[in-house]
């Protein structure tokens, strides 16, 4: 059983193949990571999944339903929420009003939507900022707002696009438990992320994308050692050199001990 399945998705922009025959599946209740070096096509794949771009070929299935041609706002209604890598707050609205726009999806009455917005704000730690205009928030605050708005739509699948990018280490430390708590509530999460430590500690399962192709999949521990992944990040032959170096160090240590 999968909550999200991407089948052989290819996305071309003219002559450029941004995503090349990518397939992945997300298990309900998991935090699944999608990583890869800059320009690997992560965000493109992400926009295809969230419905902001149609794939050139391939299919996207949500809870076994083909949603490849379903519009973005319809996907939100079905239970898929996304955040934006470059935060997109409704700048002139207050924090609570921002979140309420998301909450209005499942709550028709203003009072209910505002109540739900306050509840979600508490969940991501935005309660002290409720009445501030969104444009007054810090980067960390805006990232939380992105998260809160998406959560307020009551999703079953949450797509997070680099919610940790641009945060300092202590802000990242604060954010990780928030993401864990969301998963603990039963929301499945697919996360595109650059911050490696966070990915390694958060994810149950990781897909690695490089130059548009999926090159590896597995639990974090295995991904970290995968030679293809190391090469994708550090360049051709890097894995071998690293291994050789590790070998040398190992030998040296051995010799010393002897």
């Amino acid at each position: 059983m999968t909550i999200l399945r991407v089948e052989n998705v290819t996305k071309r922009f003219g002559g450029l193949v941004a995503v090349d025959d990518a397939s992945l599946s997300v298990t309900p209740g998991s935090i699944t990571g999608l990583i890869g070096p800059n320009g690997a096509g992560k965000t493109t794949l992400f926009t295809v999944i969230s419905g902001f771009a149609a794939p050139t070929t391939g299919r996207v299935l949500f809870e076994e339903r083909d949603i490849t041609r379903v519009e973005a706002h319809e996907r939100a209604r079905m239970g898929i929420a996304r955040t934006f890598q470059i935060v997109q707050p409704f700048a002139t609205l207050s924090v609570v009003e921002n979140i309420a726009v998301g909450a209005f999806l499942r709550h028709a009455a203003r009072a209910d939507a505002l109540e739900e917005a306050r509840r979600v704000a508490a969940e991501v730690g935005l309660t002290p900022m409720l009445d501030q205009p969104a444009k007054a928030l810090t980067v960390a605050g805006r990232k939380r707002l992105e998260l809160a708005r998406a959560l307020a739509t009551g999703p079953r699948l949450l797509l997070l696009d680099e919610v940790l990018a641009g945060l300092n280490p202590s802000e990242i430390r604060d954010m990780i438990p928030v993401i864990r708590a969301i998963r603990a509530r039963g929301v499945t999460i697919l996360i595109v992320e650059h911050v490696m430590q966070a990915v390694m500690s958060l994810c149950d399962d990781i897909y690695v994308l490089a130059q548009g192709k999926l090159i590896a999949q597995g639990p974090p521990a295995r991904i970290a050692r995968d030679p293809h992944v190391v090469e994708a990040y550090l360049g051709h032959g890097a894995a071998q050199r690293l291994q050789a170096k590790a070998g040398q160090i190992g030998e040296a240590a051995h010799a010393e001990r002897a």
Binding site: E71, A91, A113
Partner: peptide
């Protein structure tokens, strides 16, 4: 202003992509 429609209308004004992501049929 106080209804769902108003909130969605303002959301579309402020940022249409973000509104769509939140289930607003722009």
């Amino acid at each position: 202003e106080r209804a769902r429609f108003g909130a969605q209308l303002v959301a579309v004004r402020e940022n249409e992509a973000a509104a769509r992501a939140l289930g607003v049929d722009a």
